[in-house]
């Protein structure tokens, strides 16, 4: 469970406040106008930005001052998810040991993760030789080997073709189910949210609203800000 307790991030005129809980094993879509602070919310949870006020408590543990690597979180970015000079196998292996100190079963785990995301054949390719979707699969495979209970997705599929994006979403959803993850996914495609998310966190006007069930969010009975955003 992720608890955002009167969390405020304030920097150079930009402000984001949140005060709610995200249930374990939920799949939340984070929606909102661009620049509202969707990525900021994820960065606060992952520990990339310092809180101005409040707390982020994950599974009962206060995270203030805990470095990103020590948090039970894997985050996948829109871009630059893999080191360009390393092949995909090594990129995934980094998820197990930053110094690439691997035991036999670790190697097996890397192979298995690559197989799970369908990259076995491309294990020795570097990101530069792979398509955008394939590179994001590396990031997914790495998230698998890291075995962190929380998965944060910062629009990782925005640049992909619609068909490919559906595939990737399906893959993420499978992993979410299999590993019983708590997943947050920033997207600007309501369609994606409807396809995979069971709840929606809407961000607008400097505030992240508590999660609302996906069905209700898209039911048409929302306030003005949401309908302006959805164009309904």
């Amino acid at each position: 469970m992720i608890r955002l307790a009167q969390t405020v991030y304030d920097s150079e005129g930009f402000r984001l406040a949140a005060d709610f809980e995200i249930a374990r094993h939920s799949f939340s879509a984070v929606l909102g106008p661009s620049g509202a602070g969707k990525s900021t919310l994820l960065s606060l949870i992952a520990g990339f930005l310092p809180l101005t006020l409040g707390h982020v408590i994950i599974d009962g543990v206060e995270t203030d001052g805990v470095p990103p690597a020590a948090r039970p979180v894997s985050m996948i970015f829109q871009d630059h998810n893999a080191f360009a000079h390393l092949d995909s196998w090594t990129n995934v292996a980094l998820g197990i040991s930053p110094s690439l100190d691997l035991a036999e079963n670790d190697r097996a785990a890397v192979d298995e993760a690559l197989a799970r995301v369908g990259l076995s054949a491309l294990a020795r390719k570097r990101p530069g030789e792979m398509s955008g979707g394939e590179v994001q699969r590396i990031a997914l495979a790495r998230a698998l080997v890291r075995q962190k209970p929380i998965l944060l997705l910062d629009e990782p599929f925005a640049a992909l073709d619609p068909g490919l994006r559906q595939q990737m979403l399906a893959l993420v959803n499978e992993l979410h189910q299999e590993r019983r993850l708590t997943t947050l996914m920033v997207t600007h495609e309501p369609k994606d949210a409807r396809a995979v998310a069971d709840q929606v966190i809407f961000i607008d006007g400097g505030e992240a609203r508590p999660p609302a069930p996906t069905g209700r969010f898209f039911s048409g009975k929302q306030d003005k800000a949401v309908s302006r955003y959805l164009g309904t």
Binding site: P68, A70, F77, H80, N81, F83, G95
Partner: peptide
């Protein structure tokens, strides 16, 4: 993103 990724993976110092 590379820096963040490195931070998340716990790469520091020599790595």
């Amino acid at each position: 993103e590379n820096r963040r990724l490195a931070a998340q993976l716990g790469l520091h110092g020599w790595s």
